[in-house]
Amino acid sequence: MDLFISIFVATIIAATPLIFAALGELIVEKSGVLNLGIEGMMLVGAAFGVWAHFAGLPMILALVVAVLAGALVSLIFGVLVLTFMTNQYAAGLALAIFGTGVSAFVGRGFGSTPVEAIKPIHIPGLSDIPVLGEMLFRFDPLVYFAFVMFALVSWFLYKTKAGLALRAIGESPDSAHAIGFPVIRTRYLAVMFGGAMAGLGGAYLSLVYTPLWVENMTAGRGWIALALVVFAAWRPKRVILGAWLFGGMTILQLQGQAIGLKIPTEFLSALPYLATIVVLVLISRNRQAMTLDFPVSLAKPFRPAG
């Protein structure tokens, strides 16, 4: 029972950075833009978060710095693909490389210095409930914030006029433009939201999860977040589900190593990546489910006529 609880809790925590990054990318893709640079934006957020922390800022401001850094670096991508109509694949890859470099540069000197991590909160009463309290009410605040963001993103996409406009722009930018929606401005905002969320996800890794700065510490989570959006078939609810699945894979792998399974560690470490492929295959075979919420204009450049 204790093992189950600890795996459950660890899974929820491991899923949190993925939820942030994937929810951000979901909004970006729903607007019709494909940003492959999540890994770079996450690393930038992680490094700037640590930098701000060691500069003496309180934790909440360190998170704000990480969010701003992610949004700012995503703006470079935005200018490239939205104003200069660059190939989105190439620009996203450039962002991934650039972000890796910038983060290594910013984070140099902080390597392996432990960060005083954001503490789990104690809710009087709730946290003390046996089992349930341990499983649900002893997380750090960002875990709960991830669910707040999930609720906000779902509400925004499906319950607000602006969300409808965003989806319309992703479906058919030409018609959206014709009826007066600001296509380019909306896409800029979406891209920056994606950057901010990736930055937050990265900061979660360096300020809560690990918690210290290590070069390339995201270890492919940015790419897994990208896969999650496909896995989720562009629906927020399934982003959460997918994140738990992948979080669970990561934790099972760690647990397997901890209890000394007679399998080489490399095989266990490969599990999350292999699982991503398997899940992608399963979901992609169902073309109908894939196309239902698919933003049709994804990765296609748009230039307003006139």
Partner: peptide, 26 residues
């Protein structure tokens, strides 16, 4: 200088190259 400078260079160069291609068609 840290070795990450080379990565930043690569990224910057690619950004500018991609953006400058714009001048060919517009």
């Amino acid at each position: 200088l840290p070795s990450s400078i080379a990565l930043i260079f690569q990224g910057l160069l690619l950004f500018f190259l991609l953006a400058s291609n714009f001048l060919i068609n517009f």
